[in-house]
Nucleic acid binder design. Structure first.
Lengths: 225, 225
DNA sequence: CGTGATCCTGACCAATTGGTCAAACTCTCC
DNA sequence: GGAGAGTTTGACCAATTGGTCAGGATCACG
């Protein structure tokens, strides 16, 4: 027997991919509210427990919905996860996209570092969501890494290489420069528990020190000669 | 009814903590072999799936044992995890311990970076084991972080600060310097999937480029004036 | 206000999973 | 070679978990 007819009674607002209708703007106010609540709850749970560690019950509870109601909006746990990653992908790549050829190269890169550090402070759950995923081999986003992400990084690596060739920044491997920026900034979100366990900071005070340190680190390493 | 009498027939070689007898040297050759196989299998599975994502069946299969036989050596999944973390803790802290006041400070720190990078290449599973744990809030090792690890980092931070005060390295925040070293080196183990997806390197060739980049990064940033 | 579409729920199910146990097997050492 | 400790296993169990379904409640709108 077929899973679900194309059109029948009680058909939930689910697309073929299992995602709640995203672009097809026809969303009820109720859908708007619940889908948003689900994705927010899913971010909380997935980022804190990883895909396999998260349970539908946890997500449902966090979203103040019953489990069957959850599955009315998304047809499976996988579907929620996919929708969440997909929703956050743009946010995630945005900072690197803004790295542009205008302006002083060293300033431009330091500005990128600061933006990434801000994101680690303001959106730590989003960072941990991707961290969980990648640490375990990126099973759900390998295609994105090897496709759009690689393309974007290749493009920016070219830019950095050009800056180096023009003598406007020091000669460094652009790929490893980008990796180091990701590592040092996301560290404050992904390894938050360790950072706080060691520093025991009041609030987010340590982010200011981190900003100062990273500014020094990259400015000295990138300034030519 | 009591869980298990202190001494009875069929009592497995399990200590109060649920760990297989570690220091009490009285281990059979069979115990030696199986416990080692279990811990190796557990490292493989836990590092790839996280604590909750790992199953006893997976670990048992990887160790070529039946599940009940697994539980003959360790009384629970938690116990295996604890034993594993405990076994690897020293390995994990060893590089930082070797940071000593002898030698030229900049060289000493760069040497530490290289050692950490070597570990990321040679022991990526161990790195990911801890990464998984910490990303999810370090529930099983928070006490270690706040205790022995913090103490060790505090000690080394003092040393670095002294070096800075003596003008032998640049004035940088020692804690954030250490965090950045952890982040940049462990990145190649923890985010291996992403690094390889973007670089598509042959074998581990990219580690040489990483070593060059990190050497430049820290040498320029730490050399005084 | 009625009707069709949307939304929600309790009850239920099969598979997975951590863990137990009694019994059988095997190794060691006298 | 035999006795007792150490080792292994098949069968089993309860709890959890992802997911289903039929029917009832509610909403939007003519």
């Amino acid at each position: 027997m077929e899973r679900r007819a194309v059109k029948d009674f009680g058909s939930p607002p689910i697309t073929e991919t299992g995602m709640a209708m995203p672009e097809t703007a026809a969303r009820t106010r109720i859908q708007e509210k619940n889908i948003s609540a689900i994705l927010n709850a899913a971010l909380e749970v997935f980022s804190g427990a990883g895909f396999r560690g998260a349970t539908l019950d946890q997500i449902a509870r966090a979203a103040s919905l019953s489990k069957p109601n959850l599955l009315y909006y998304f047809k499976s746990k996988e579907a929620i996860h996919r929708a969440l990653l997909s929703e956050l992908l743009d946010t995630w790549l945005a900072p690197l996209r803004t790295l542009d050829s205008g302006g002083e190269p060293v300033d431009e890169i330091v500005r990128y570092v600061m933006r990434k550090l801000d994101m680690a402070r303001e959106l730590p759950r989003e960072s941990r969501l991707f961290a969980n995923e990648i640490v375990q081999g990126a099973p759900h986003i390998l295609d994105i890494i090897e496709g759009p992400l690689k393309a974007l990084v290749d493009e920016k690596a070219s830019l950095i290489r050009k800056w180096a060739a023009e003598g406007r920044i020091a000669e460094v491997d652009p790929y490893h420069l980008i990796f180091s920026i990701w590592a040092t900034t996301q560290h404050y979100a992904d390894f938050d528990a360790q950072v706080r366990g060691i520093l025991r900071p009041e609030r987010d005070r340590h982010f200011d020190d981190a900003a100062r340190f990273l500014t020094h680190l990259y400015r000295t390493a990138l300034t030519p000669d």
